[in-house]
Amino acid sequence: MNHFTIFASKNDVDDIQDKIAEVFAKGFTIERGDSGYLVKSKGLFKKSRCSITVLFEDTNPDYFTQNIPGMMGYYDRIPFQDEDLKEQVMIQISVFNTVIAIEMDKEITENHMQLFTRLLASIGGVGFLPDGTLLDQSGSVIVYSNGESGPANFRPQACARKIRSQEVTSEQGETRKNRTIAFLTDKEIPYATSLPQLPPLEGCRFKSQEEIAKRAVSLLIVIQFACDVAQNGNIEESREFFTNMLRTYEVQESLTEHEKFFLETQHPSPQDAVNISWQYEAYWTLIWALGLVEELDFPDDVCDCEYAIQVVSRCETFEQFYKQTVLRSKEEILDEADKIYRLHWACVDSRINGQVAPLSLNESVVMERRRGLFWMMGYQDEEWDTISMDT
């Protein structure tokens, strides 16, 4: 074994460098690198070195988006001896926002483990061994890899920011969650019972019919510009044409700041163009909510782009477009949001485990549908471009 990882839930990591320096003060030299620290023993004999990488959710969001769902899935599948302990472990994993990954150049000795446990105690996190065993901050075993309980008297700890964002449970949310799980079970799609409920209706800030309609029209127009950019079209002509379209439909103010920048910049990024083009799938949820799409089919294929364009292009003004819309109920929108949320978990879980997504789920389609649905329900007041994709 030459790896030891500390997971924690902290408001900041400003003191971590000092804690590393304190633990390795005697007999070691510490070099600061771009991605962390290199710790070398000073002795002439039995020399060792280890790299310590520190990751924080605010600065390394991709790591947490890609790895925490997999960690939750891993422990969800372990047959815990104590179901209450399993729930506590799952809660703790869900609030991790700091990782300190230690890699030795040789096998970890008992002396090394003592040092690593001291670092664990000073940071106040959970220790993770390569076989899946978890340690509390004192070094006592919380749970072994086979699900057997250890001697630690474990209770999860979370930083203030994570506590504020924790799940609000309700009978309505549980009913909705169970309904989605029944759908997934029927289709033999894996799911995580630990994945939280979505808020009840009264806990959401739903967008109005007019807000959704204006967002749909403005998004479709900027998508068309993005498609031209991605296909190496005449950018200036395209920019002028679609800017005039925005004025015609009077929806300029419904663009996001990122979209405004993309539309106005002299040399739009090709990658941004591709990313925005994918938002056809988010747009599809908007026109579904407006009653212009009969149902959201299973997300294993892309939407009907030709029809998606026609629902707007056949209208000469925004008012004409708006008059043909009928907003679906908040319950319908929330039901679909819950479904896509849990389908997203299935996509991430299969990807992390090197498996094909169940029933050919298209993760890109799922993510963009989630963007649209979560935006409409006003999930945590997140903006369009920053909808959280955590699972």
Score class of each variant (00 low, 15 high):
368 E>I: 04
178 N>D: 11
62 D>T: 12
158 A>P: 00
35 S>F: 14
234 N>V: 07
312 V>A: 08
381 D>I: 08
312 V>I: 15
367 M>Y: 03
81 Q>H: 09
343 L>R: 00
357 A>Y: 05
146 N>S: 14
12 D>E: 15
238 S>T: 09
238 S>Y: 04
363 E>W: 06
65 T>S: 12
317 T>P: 03
131 D>M: 11
41 S>N: 07
388 S>H: 05
157 Q>M: 15
373 L>G: 01
74 Y>T: 02
82 D>P: 01
241 F>K: 14
340 I>L: 02
294 E>S: 12
49 R>F: 05
252 Q>G: 03
15 D>K: 14
58 D>S: 13
112 H>M: 14
271 Q>P: 01
327 L>Q: 14
124 G>F: 13
253 E>N: 15
306 E>F: 02
36 G>D: 01
200 P>Q: 12
47 K>C: 05
380 Q>A: 09
255 L>S: 02
43 G>K: 15
380 Q>P: 03
165 S>P: 00
322 Y>P: 04
46 K>R: 14
335 D>C: 05
378 G>F: 13
381 D>Q: 12
65 T>G: 03
364 S>Y: 09
78 I>R: 02
181 I>Y: 11
247 R>E: 13
279 Q>T: 11
178 N>Y: 08
81 Q>F: 08
344 H>M: 10
112 H>C: 11
90 M>F: 00
265 T>H: 07
270 P>F: 07
154 F>E: 12
41 S>P: 04
151 P>M: 09
391 T>H: 00
247 R>A: 14
385 D>Y: 06
147 G>T: 04
33 G>P: 00
92 Q>D: 13
320 Q>H: 12
135 L>F: 11
133 T>R: 07
29 T>S: 14
235 I>Y: 04
222 V>F: 04
257 E>S: 13
282 A>S: 15
370 R>P: 00
22 E>D: 14
383 E>H: 10
235 I>G: 01
55 L>K: 15
